[in-house]
């Protein structure tokens, strides 16, 4: 039909068809060590999340040993704010839910939760819940379904879901569902694959996936796949590797991952590798970064790549780590 579709073309580069595991490992290893790098400094305000992306990527490819555990745990613990019970993204910043989840994910990954005062964190998180069931990210007060996910995931990882009002959390998330079956940031805002993941993940944690119209949402999610094989986050946007995670994980939670063309998506993700530096970028040929490197690897893991460890759909940590915790959550079948 000659309909214009916003998409990219995959480069004809046979060398990108295999997974460049060693390159990715050395990319992450040097990224974490090069503290004088400008990119590293510019992202100071999200440092703890950056560390989580790097560690999880390394663990997924069996290279966690190459990271300096003691140094990292020291740093993460230095970001703990004893007054509020939240984690700062970096020293000299303010605590926030986003970094609290990242810090807890790191501690879980290293099996080091005993280092922290769980009750303080639980109190930080539960105080951020609003009367309508939504969550703000910090005491300054913006509401976002992302923060619902951060809160519920953090509490679930700590085994303390009882600390918030689950029924109200679910009500708020339901109120963000749109006419197309997707979810946005707050009620009324446009469906977006990243927010869909946060909402579906939250509902899975609350074991309330009955709220979703899984067929309609599944169709909206699999419509995100473009002819290049890549997935976008909203209609008429370019494909991006991080969406391979948000969309795939959401589809998997509702038992419909096979509705997309896995082979083509695999080719797309592979094509975003940088065969010189290592790492993955958002689209073929762009600059790589740890964020897209983690979600590229996690996406490939969900697609069944055997060179990568199994990844947990909801918490984006290696599956063996989550199994240790024996968490309880809901998954749907087709």
């Amino acid at each position: 039909m000659g309909t214009p579709v916003k998409d990219v073309e995959l480069p004809d580069r046979p060398e990108l068809q295999e997974l460049l595991l060693e390159k990715h490992a050395s990319y992450i290893e040097t990224f974490e060590k090069n503290k004088d790098d400008l990119d590293y400094c510019m992202t100071e305000f999200l440092r703890v999340s950056g560390i989580y992306w790097c560690l999880t990527a390394m663990d997924l490819i069996g290279q966690l040993d190459r990271m300096n555990k003691t140094e990292i745990l020291d740093y993460v613990m230095s970001c703990f704010d004893k007054d509020t019970g939240g984690f700062r993204p970096a020293v000299n910043h303010d605590p926030h839910l986003l970094y609290t989840l990242s810090a807890v994910q790191i501690l879980i990954l290293y099996d080091s939760v005993s280092l922290i005062d769980k009750d303080r964190i639980v109190s930080f998180v539960s105080k951020l819940q609003q009367p309508d069931g939504s969550f703000v990210g910090d005491r300054w007060g913006e509401v976002d379904t992302r923060f619902s996910f951060c809160a519920l995931a953090t509490l679930s990882l700590l085994g303390r879901l009882d600390a918030v009002d689950i029924e109200k959390s679910v009500q708020f998330i339901s109120s963000c569902m749109n006419f197309d079956g997707g979810f946005g940031v707050i009620p009324g805002s446009e469906s977006h694959a990243g927010q869909v993941y946060c909402c579906v993940g939250s509902l899975a944690i609350c074991k309330r996936l009955d709220v979703i119209n899984a067929d309609q949402l599944g169709w909206w999610l699999c419509e995100r796949q473009l002819p290049s094989g890549g997935l976008n986050g909203r209609p008429e946007k370019l494909p991006d590797v991080c969406y391979s995670w948000w969309v795939l994980a959401s589809l998997s939670i509702i038992g419909r991952i096979h509705w997309i063309d896995k082979e083509r998506l695999t080719q797309f993700i592979m094509a975003t590798q940088d065969d010189e530096t290592g790492g993955f970028s958002d689209r073929p040929g762009d600059m790589v970064d740890p964020f897209h490197t983690l979600f590229g690897l996690a996406g490939l893991s969900l697609l069944g790549n055997r060179q990568i460890k199994g990844v947990n759909l909801i918490f984006c940590l290696p599956q063996n780590v989550i199994e240790r915790l024996e968490l309880d959550y809901e998954l749907l079948k087709e």
């Binding site: 060590k33 090069n34 503290k35 004088d36 790098d37 400008l38 400094c41 100071e44 140094e71 020291d74 740093y75 230095s78 970096a90 020293v91 000299n92």
Partner: peptide, 28 residues
């Protein structure tokens, strides 16, 4: 001014732009 705390093994911070470092050291 307070320089950025990059953990126990600070490396020489050559690639910061000077202005960036100057401003943020004073901001901290």
């Amino acid at each position: 001014p307070i320089p950025q705390d990059d953990g126990p093994n600070p490396v020489v911070q050559i690639a910061y732009t000077d202005k960036f470092k100057d401003v943020y050291d004073y901001l901290r």
